[in-house]
């Protein structure tokens, strides 16, 4: 492990007001509610940053607009922005997002996780690592990594 924090003093942004769904379920029993941007964002907004007690939303690592979703074709893409360019935690964050979505979305979905273009020094390498099935599976064989990921995914107290 690296000694000391990678980004010692991250900027913490104010949380966005939780948007309440106005047209929620009580309208009709049989109108389907497709999985949408906000729902995916709700899944990942509370993931904790690996080195700070703040959530990814607080640090603007992910925003609602960074989620693209196509329910009909079962495709979702999350583009996240690490807080600093050389952040070695980028892969861990990506892994957390992937695991969280794997747990929360139906199996039919293909999940694509990317680092925002220009936001990371080794962008291509990270992207490749995050979207390689074998490597993700291998990473999750590692008990240390799994423990770390689980810690980040613990529900926050709020």
């Amino acid at each position: 492990m690296v000694s000391g924090l990678i980004n010692e003093n991250p900027i913490i942004y104010p949380k966005k007001e939780r948007r309440l769904r106005s047209d929620s379920s009580n309208t009709d029993e049989f109108t389907p509610e497709p999985i949408d941007q906000l729902e995916i964002f709700d899944h990942i907004r509370d993931i904790k940053d690996p080195e700070h007690p703040n959530s990814l939303e607080d640090l603007r690592v992910v925003t609602e607009d960074s989620v693209e979703v196509d329910d009909e074709n079962s495709y979702v893409r999350v583009t996240f922005t690490p807080t600093v360019e050389h952040c070695s935690m980028a892969t861990i964050i990506g892994l957390c997002v992937r695991v969280k979505l794997l747990r929360s979305l139906p199996a039919r979905y293909k999940i694509d996780i990317r680092v925002a273009p220009g936001s990371h020094a080794t962008e291509d390498a990270v992207n490749k690592q995050l979207n390689d099935k074998e490597r993700v599976a291998a990473a999750l064989e590692n008990p240390n990594l799994v423990e770390m990921v689980d810690e980040c995914l613990l529900p926050s107290d709020e």
Binding site: R21, S24, S25, P32, E33, I35, E39, H43, S104, R108
Partner: peptide, 14 residues
């Protein structure tokens, strides 16, 4: 159930 048409069910399922 994760693929339920209704959001509330999906949330509960997760």
């Amino acid at each position: 159930s994760l693929d339920d048409p209704k959001r509330r069910v999906r949330e509960e399922a997760i």
